[in-house]
Write a protein that binds this DNA or RNA. Structure first.
Lengths: 182, 182
DNA sequence: TCACACTATGCAACAAGTTGAATATTATAC
DNA sequence: GTATAATATTCAACTTGTTGCATAGTGTGA
């Protein structure tokens, strides 16, 4: 399972203690484009990681806002994470609603599909703009960045390519629907 | 949820009754690249779909092999599926192990990452070859195909683009690791 | 001051997905 | 004749992911 690994990775990646709330924000911001989840799952997972000795927690009292519990990765957690990195990855299969819809696209007027593809394309273009902006602001001088930053740039590049793939796919599908169908 | 929709779609798409076993094969063959699952989940989902009146089943006695239960989509099922198609799709977020690994790539020697990326690339290239072969055999004359076939071709194209995206990503990452890191 | 947004954590229930095994028949290869 | 692969279905247990709700304090704008 990779959520636990994502949590450990974020704890190391950010280089400081984070609360469940911090982690949730991280996972759902533009930065955390590589993993999506809910805060409930994160809290549940953190409790388990603590039970397994992968992280330790500490309550921090706050005056201006509710108290929080911040987490640190342990040596056990770090060893576990490094071991996981070296395991071979298997390709993630596609599970895309739009593909299922397309498979039975003949059941509805093609305009419906075109409209949906256009909507999907818009959403991906918005995301792409965000990533590109992020690239411009934080990664204009990658060559001179510390290693950590370079790895983060690699990830951002993937996010950009991922969006480009989806945009191209939507365009190809729309064009195909317009030209090949009457 | 889209597994139930995938099952209904496959039942319509194939235009004939299928058993749970047939469906499982379909979902895990090169054709069913748009959705992956296990036979257990399919059997469970079929039972539920039947309870909800989306499909009907019928036991077929066989002499040469174990008896089977074949499923048909009902009008209710078809209406439900068409309704679902018209609902707007939301982009599928990335959940890719390799991205998490890359995020903390600085924890291991870069050779480990390069090796993994190479392995991943090989797997995607194999899949791409399969899809391209499939394209050549079944879709050489798309313009003159029935509508159903055209939609299936659209899906195959997406599969091809998906593999190309992953291959390009792996290449970019390997190159980056080789050039930008010392 | 009232509503709303933000910070912060957690429970409960459910839906979806995975893993392992049991059962039974027939076909094929060694 | 023996092992194995393929056909065919199902149960049980578990993990992962989602949805809704509860609680509780602070900050901000209308």
């Amino acid at each position: 399972m990779a959520l636990s690994h994502s949590i450990l990775a974020t704890l190391i990646g950010r280089g400081k203690s984070l609360s469940g709330y911090d982690l949730a924000k991280e996972f759902n911001s533009s930065v955390g484009f590589y993993w999506k989840t809910t805060h409930q799952q994160i809290y549940r997972e953190l409790a388990r990681l603590e039970k397994e000795g992968m992280v330790t927690s500490e309550v921090v009292k706050q005056k201006d806002r509710p108290d929080k519990k911040i987490y640190n990765i342990t040596d056990t957690g770090k060893v576990h994470l490094i071991g996981w990195i070296a395991e071979p990855s298997i390709p993630t299969p596609i599970k895309e609603d739009m593909l299922v819809k397309m498979y039975v696209g003949f059941l509805v007027p093609k305009d419906i599909l075109i409209k949906e593809l256009q909507q999907l394309k818009d959403l991906h273009e918005e995301k792409l703009r965000l990533f590109r902006e992020y690239e411009k602001i934080y990664f204009s001088d990658v060559k001179n960045m510390p290693v950590k930053g370079k790895y983060r740039y690699l990830n951002l590049r993937t996010g950009i390519n991922f969006e480009l793939f989806h945009i191209r796919w939507c365009e190809e599908a729309i064009e195909f629907l317009n030209n090949e169908f009457e």
